[in-house]
Design a protein around this nucleic acid. Structure first.
Length: 513
RNA sequence: CGGGGUGUAGCUCAGCCUGGCUAGAGCGCGUGGUUUGGGACCACGAAGUCGCAGGUUCAAAUCCUGUCACCCCGACCA
């Protein structure tokens, strides 16, 4: 099998598609804009779900489920949201088909009185429900999350990064006070940061979006922003403080301790299968997928070798003993209290190069080889996915403590993936002191772009006057947007490099996915 | 929605311009054999309504009309 992944330096978008395909993560479906998530990809999503769900539960949230279909009129209730999503809603207008001359067609007799939209997000239907659930301050807070699919009819789609239908979670909370709601919005964006950094090994910037980039209907939006290997930014998660906008639109009031009617305060927050795209573009290399161990569907693959049955049998038996030892290791929080996933590959008829490459493409963090020479010495060979080739191999590892060594190796891989990604981002984060410097960092002429290396883009700190006009001008001129105003970045005031007006603090510009 | 492109075997594609025997190749797949510590090789074999619907013709993958789907590039976006 000579299926080869396009190197990143040759064609980065093609590299991404190659990895998604060959690692068995997803396929384009026959349905425009929608994807089939394949088992290897879905397994990563399940690992993400499990970890996130635990973090949500630990912060007091519970799961529920609300309808896929939302009456059109609900969306219209919140003006900003209606405006924001109107152009990308799928609409259900009929409830029946009929067969005519052997052809199925929509039955014109079966038109719905009111069209239903397929949820692009669930604030409206949820707040319409909260109206019934909230009467007293004693009913608050409501801390509810839902795992669901949503549909946004995008013009151009890319596997995982932007599809017409995607899977996500959406938290929707209602609070008695503004302060409590704002704390919730901040708490959850920090949960996302923790998840991104500790599980995905993906460093993120955390902070508010600008007025122009916030979620329609929000008072403000907090986000986590990650840098992909090509230097582009990926919005990986958002947490919104919604103020009383939805409470007012859906008339959700409660009686406070002083017997006064008040509107409830709201937040919503979500991450989606887009994270899988982020995971790929943070760690993977020209050999294929790289998955941090905490999210890997398969932690360890053991490949026994041997030319004939006599050589293979002892290798296989050693592989089975090692697999058992790995699966029986004490469970701990690092792996979500779950046993290690270990696979023994017995495709003896394939060459080891083929077998190794296959698991490399699929991103299995650790590969073990046990051959006749190892059996003679009671050893095995460990190969770590994050360092492909000979550098990442440890030869002559004694079989008796191999399980411990592998366990430690998995933790080391997780750690070093994060450190490597953070170094990568920090090395590509710069400050533009004036417009000329900025212009050099975001070249727009075609021929300039073609000469640029694939990983030339950067995160650029620059002073901005805080106006929407300037932001839009920059976006038009340089195709770069303000990704966020990082909490943990520099905060000194200065002078806007675009207009010369005063700037409250530097903000981060980048090209974005 | 505008511009461009492509639909032929599971995948990638040739054949189409200039219509004509039984529609081809590589990869993959199956069987047998030789191999096996980084993507092996030999032999044999299975596999195709030529996207779909009309039309022209003695004859259509090939020409004409219509239609559908997908991909790429633009405007919009998590």
């Amino acid at each position: 099998m000579a299926e080869v992944i396009t190197p990143r330096a040759v064609d980065y978008p093609q590299w991404y598609l190659d990895v998604v395909k060959q690692a068995g993560l997803a396929d384009n479906s026959e349905v425009r804009g929608c994807m089939v998530i394949r088992p290897n990809g879905y397994a990563i999503w399940e690992k993400m779900q499990r970890a996130l769900d635990r973090l949500f539960k630990e912060t007091g949230h519970v799961n529920a489920y609300f309808p896929l279909f939302i009456p059109l009129s609900y969306l219209a209730r919140e003006e900003e949201m209606a405006e924001g999503f109107a152009k990308e809603c799928a609409v259900v207008t009929h409830y029946r088909l009929k067969a005519e001359q052997g052809r199925l067609m929509v039955d014109p007799q079966a038109e719905l009185e009111e069209p239903l939209i397929v949820r692009p997000t669930s604030e409206t239907i949820i707040w319409n429900t909260y109206k019934k659930w909230v009467q007293s301050y004693r009913d608050l807070p409501l801390l509810i999350n839902q795992w669901a699919n949503v549909v946004r009819w995008e013009m151009r789609t890319r596997l995982f990064l932007r599809t017409a239908e995607f899977l996500w979670q959406e938290g929707h909370t209602a609070h008695a006070t503004q302060q409590e709601a704002e704390e919730e919005a901040h708490r959850m964006v920090r949960v996302y940061q923790q998840f991104a950094e500790e599980y995905m090994a993906m460093p993120v910037l955390v902070g508010p979006k600008t007025e122009g980039q916030k979620f329609p209907g929000a008072v403000y939006t907090l986000c986590i922003e990650a840098m992909m290997q090509d230097g582009k930014a990926l919005q990986a998660g958002t947490s919104h403080f919604l103020g009383q906008n939805f409470a007012k639109a859906f008339d959700v009031t409660f009686t406070n301790e002083r017997n006064q009617q008040e509107y409830a305060w709201a937040t919503s927050w979500g991450v989606s299968t887009r994270l899988i795209g982020g995971l790929i573009m943070t760690h993977s290399d020209d050999n294929g997928l790289v998955v941090p161990p905490r999210l890997a569907p398969l932690h360890v693959v053991i490949c026994p070798l041997g030319r004939n049955d006599d050589e293979r049998r002892p290798c296989r038996e050693a592989a089975e003993r090692l697999a058992r030892a790995l699966r029986e290791r004490p469970r701990d929080p690092f792996f979500g209290y779950e046993p290690l996933n270990v696979h023994i590959d017995t495709l003896f008829d394939k060459q080891i190069g083929f077998r190794a490459a296959e698991y490399e493409v699929r991103g299995v963090p650790v590969r073990v080889e046990i051959g006749p020479k190892d059996i003679a010495q009671g050893t095995c060979v460990l190969a770590r996915r994050d360092q492909p080739g000979k550098e990442g191999k440890q030869f002559g590892v004694p079989l008796e403590n191999a399980a411990e060594r592998i366990d430690a190796l998995l933790r080391d891989i997780q750690r070093s993936l994060f450190e490597r990604a953070r170094r990568y981002r920090d090395n590509r984060t710069v400050t533009a002191r004036n417009l000329d410097e900025f212009r050099d960092l975001f070249p727009v002429r075609k021929d300039d772009n073609e000469e640029l290396p694939w990983d030339a883009l950067k995160f650029v700190y620059a002073h901005w006057d805080g106006t929407r006009e300037t932001e839009e001008w920059v976006q038009k001129e340089f195709k770069a947007t303000i990704r966020c105003l990082p909490f943990d970045g520099p905060q000194e005031p200065g002078t806007c490099i675009f207009t010369g007006k005063p700037s409250a603090r530097p903000v981060v510009f980048a090209r974005a996915y």
